[in-house]
Design a protein around this nucleic acid. Structure first.
Length: 131
RNA sequence: CGAGUUGGCCAGGCAAUCGCUGGCAAGAUUUUUUGUCAGAGGAAAGUCCGGGCUCCAUAGGACAAGGUGCCAGGUAACGCCUGGGGGGCGUGAGCCCACGGAAAGUGCAGCAGAGAGUAGACCGCCACACAUUAAUGCGUGGUAAGGGUGAAAGGGUGUGGUAAGAGCGCACCGCAGGCUUCUGGUAACAGACCUGGCUAGGUAAACCCCACCUGGAGCAAGGCUAAAUAGAAAUCCGUUCGCGUGGUCCGCGCGGGAUUUGGGUAGGCUGCUAGAGACAUUCGGUGACGAAUGCCGUAGAGGAAUGAUUGCCCAAGACAGAACCCGGCUUACAGGCUGACUCAAUCC
């Protein structure tokens, strides 16, 4: 791929911003482990972060957006995409932890994308402080 | 040009960069890299119907329960669609209708009113008797034309008739019957004719009756492969008991016994997208639709992809996200394009 050399002169070495399967929580037991043994809990409404250290070299992300938080499937998809995108951009600054981002039911600002963005950046900052 | 009716179609576009999922090819060699191609909807929604598919019997019998309900056609099927009939609304194009049976039975109907389903005398009208002075009062009887009540008063209008009245008689309209009359129509039905009499009110998305239809569960269905652990399959025999099976019973299958052989949860793979398929032309049909020929290749995730940032353009972007697949219905929806038709005005 040419892009690293040509289109992105400000990036000195090729750092990948992908979001493959190794960066995701893919099974129910992974989620259960995080919820049970959570060592970090932070909340910036409308979002909540739960995390534990993992044995990998990278962070892993899981997203929980329930029907009670956002009724319409379109809105749930939009929020999940925003969270994934944010994680993708932040992943190299984050410690190696299994992280779950959860939408809090019954909070305002669920449909406001700037609220998500603010909450996410605060959560990432908190997590770096912990790590 | 204005007002309106109805059918079809579209659902911001382009570019750059960073990402996601899948197919194919190549490299690496056991799950990654590179290239390339593809990647949400008209409703993907509500889950209200109908099918396919899978397992339980090949889905079978009885009862129960539910659904449908003018006729004909279309279809894999339908509660859908098309055409027709009947009724209602609209000047019209057109729109709306759960549109079988109330003389099989049961039930229900507030208030008002004399009386509400075997009708019924409150006022009025009429006759007779009595009282007093012509008129009135009182009593007895007749009367459903008029008033009044009500959503509804037991056919309507006219005429004869009568003490006053009344389908009491007659004419027309309406109604019922003609199962086996005639004409048109495949039929629903329409028209004609004959007979009858005025009875048989409403309600069946009240029970009910009649006709027709419906077995149950669902892709977490089901199949293959398989750590831990010792629960299995095939064949034969048998039907006390338990389970499959759903509301019940019958029936059927499995567990049971014998023989032989090897099996199975987490996980993985599969089911998983080529289908009642799309488009074009021709032919048949009023139409829904069907047939033939040609041509196209069109999401397939699985904690769940189709996004983010930036720029430009315009009329400034609604409702909304596939989860086994189709056919419908219903509901939501910014705006735009387009076919046909109606009404009114004007011009020729």
């Amino acid at each position: 791929m040419q892009k690293g050399a040509k289109g992105w002169p400000y990036r000195s070495k090729p750092v990948r911003f992908g979001y493959g399967n190794s960066l995701r929580l893919t099974e129910k037991r992974h989620f259960d482990r995080v919820f049970r043994q959570a060592s970090v809990r932070r909340a910036h409404p409308p979002l909540r972060l739960i995390a534990i250290p993992n044995a990998k070299t990278t962070p892993r992300l899981g997203i929980v957006v329930g029907k009670r938080a956002l009724r319409r499937a379109v809105d749930r998809n939009r929020l999940k995409r925003a969270i994934r995108e944010s994680f993708r951009n932040e992943q190299h600054r984050l410690p190696s932890m299994d992280i779950i981002i959860q939408a809090m039911p019954g909070k305002d600002g669920m449909n406001d994308s700037t609220e998500w963005a603010n909450a996410l950046s605060l959560l990432w900052k908190d997590l770096n402080g912990e790590g």
